[in-house]
Write a protein that binds this DNA or RNA. Structure first.
Lengths: 211, 211
DNA sequence: GTCTATAAATGGATAGAC
DNA sequence: GTCTATCCATTTATAGAC
């Protein structure tokens, strides 16, 4: 592994663990047992590291979003897809826990993240559309954009909520709860199929949570 | 108005307008056309100012939460109460837009904010309970805590979402949309009464939004 | 109470030796 | 590529005059 990769890997771990805001370029160098000078040789500073990490995140997220198109039809598919999305996001939790701050500090990232949000919004909308076509989802006239926005918001701030409540919950458990919560946004609009899905998810949820 | 009050009022305005993170003690002094020395005479620094502002916010929010007990019964009451809550929060938007960062920087505030969240959670739960007793709300067995959490999350991060999407929406319009969105979390669990309420709220929403 | 001036602390960044 | 040494900018905080 070359130095550039080591720096990215180490920074990501450090940011996720200790929070991005309070880490300086020197801190990063220390963790990697490397001189600040060397760090600056590879990256112009913390900003450049964050930009590179964001590149990685964005590429992965876009791949996931595009992979969803047309392939996710049943309620169960949606449910599993959510797990994958949330795990991906969790890998870059430092970013999501400090969204506002980071985007304010790096306007170029803000532009890109907004575009990514738009693609997420589109994908969510398409997934709901597929469920409607399949006849399992029945939305009242004006509900759809509101429901999409609710899902997007939960997808964007579940990690912030966890951080703020200070639960410091374990990854698997937190993701399970969040999947459950997001599915619960949709289920009330599903009629009979929703009740079944709810029971299935609840049962699964219980088994997982008891571990 | 004495100097202490001037500082608090000016800081709140500055933070709300320009974001808390990028304002230094000197910036605050400049806005108030006052020397940094004088500022430090009244407050030990930015941290002390933020703590004082939080005192204000917390007192107001607790008053609102306690005022709700038992007095809010109909769907319309809930809807109006939400406006009041959101307006109160909007007055301290600098805090909500930077929640994670600020709470990490001032651990004493984090403890207090968590307690406040707990009281909000309780109040929301009580309000939903009243709607259940009134027979307009019907929740499936495990739904209630999830629904409460969804509402609490939206209440906590609506301003962050607005900041992140960069919509920079006007206050009244943003609050309307958020009220609508939060009510929409509850309405699917209301059966027939929900459909009516939905239509009423939609109609009202349209009139307001067209202005 | 308020100001000016300045010290102390921190973080960002680079030059030059190896 | 990597290190040491150092400098520069920003922010915090205080001392002492008025």
């Amino acid at each position: 592994m070359n130095t550039k990769e080591r720096i990215l890997k180490g920074s990501l771990a450090l940011f996720n663990e200790e929070g991005e805001a309070r880490q300086t370029a020197v801190d990063i160098a220390n963790v990697l047992e490397m001189s600040p000078g060397n760090l600056y040789y590879h990256f112009k500073g913390k900003g450049a590291i964050i930009a590179a990490l964001y590149d990685e995140f964005e590429a992965g997220m876009r791949a996931l979003l595009r992979g969803a198109r047309g392939r996710i039809t049943s309620i169960e598919d949606n449910w599993l897809y959510l797990y994958v999305l949330l795990e991906d996001i969790h890998g870059f939790r430092f970013f999501y826990r400090n969204l506002g701050e980071i985007l304010a500090r790096y306007p170029a990232l803000a532009v890109r993240f907004r575009a990514l949000l738009a693609e997420q919004r589109q994908t969510i909308s398409a997934l709901l559309g597929d469920l409607e076509k399949a006849g399992v989802l029945h939305l009242m006239p004006r509900m759809k954009p509101v429901l999409v926005q609710q899902i997007l918001m939960m997808l964007t701030f579940w990690l912030s909520m966890d951080a703020v409540t200070g639960a410091g919950e374990e990854e698997a458990s937190l993701i399970h709860k969040t999947v459950f919560s997001i599915m619960t946004l949709v289920i009330p609009h599903m009629g009979g199929a929703g009740l079944e899905a709810m029971q299935a998810i609840s049962a699964y949820y219980d088994t997982v949570m008891e571990k």
